[in-house]
Amino acid sequence: MNPEFILGLILLLIGSAVSAFPRPKNYLIQLINLEIPGWGLLLVMLSYNEALALFTFGGVSALSTFILVRVIEKRRPI
């Protein structure tokens, strides 16, 4: 039990609970809340010393954010 693992679990719990029940219920708030468990998962991967997993996860996380932003933009025109 090193500190990275515990901190990652705390962020993962907070983020997934809040992202399941967003308070002002719209897509923007839910997308911002979804970033918190992403960083928590990165900390958990860090505690197992997986460098290649960290690279891949960082790239895929940014790419999925971009795709979700395009989908929300198309669904609700600004």
Binding site: L28, A51, A62, T65
Partner: peptide, 25 residues
């Protein structure tokens, strides 16, 4: 932990993700 390359790549990727979210604010 000593992952300097991961830290440099993540430091570049994280603001780009925020700027994507700012497009729909």
């Amino acid at each position: 932990r000593g992952f300097l390359d991961v830290a440099a790549a993540t430091a570049v990727i994280a603001p780009i993700s925020t700027i994507f979210i700012l497009l729909i604010c």
